[in-house]
Amino acid sequence: MTTPTLTPPHLVSTSETTVAVPEPPRPSTSDHLYRLVVWGGLLLVFVWSFGPAEINRFVYLFTDASNMAEYAKGFLTPNFRDWEYYVEEMILTVQIALWGTVLSVIFGIPFALLSSNNLAPVWIVQPVRRLMDACRAINELVFAVLFVVAVGLGPFAGVMALFIHNLGIISKLFSEAVEAVDPRPVEGIRATGASRLQEIIYGVVPQVMPLWISFSLYRFETNVRSATVLGIVGAGGIGQILFESIRGFLYAETAAILIIVVVTVSLIDILSQQLRKLAI
């Protein structure tokens, strides 16, 4: 690749004075090395995990396809005889997700502000972030098992599981939005002699509101999906009957339940999309 022949002559010399045009920047050797390390490293990681993840068994997907077909046939005739019961449990599942989300948003806001580098000092940010990491790292199913022990079988254990797990997620998402705000309006408010909290309420919150609403709606969608499995460990909702029907080899009933889950999740997706448009 030679560039000099491509340079239009009129860019190089204007009337009588000749302007020296610098060469376009080229990636340096260290840039190349960096790229090699990143891509090479990624490739190594995939090779390393190929065996342990048993990816070599993908051939069974084709050789044993008849088994799969047999299994899938059971799902082709969904049995909606108990649909009222399923819908009732599905609504309960949505209610669990609703409360789990609302609680995590309400309690997530202060934690988000405390874990934002542009609002809180580092000795507060770091411990709060690590605490939120812990909430996020533990799956909601694990929390559900713990809360079933603490508050007994039923929907409330599910609400608490979603609440704690989402507290970690919401505070991370919210604080990332807070760290990206334009500092100038905040400084404008500080210059009027407003208090620290007022700077946040009038300067930060209006800027992050559309993102916060969008994140909350997205988490609600996700929580409805998560809540459908919480029932497996006895934390209420449609998961409980889903698990029972799978264990009882009742494929027709399982298919009916799955269809209800899919329709509900789709409906909530459509609804939250509309709400998000209103918010932004």
């Binding site: 100038r184 309006p185 400084e187 404008g188 408010i189 210059a191 009038y202 300067g203 209006p206 800027q207 509101m209």
Partner: peptide
């Protein structure tokens, strides 16, 4: 840059 809060 005025430093008003645009969304208010």
């Amino acid at each position: 840059q005025f430093n008003l809060v645009g969304r208010l």
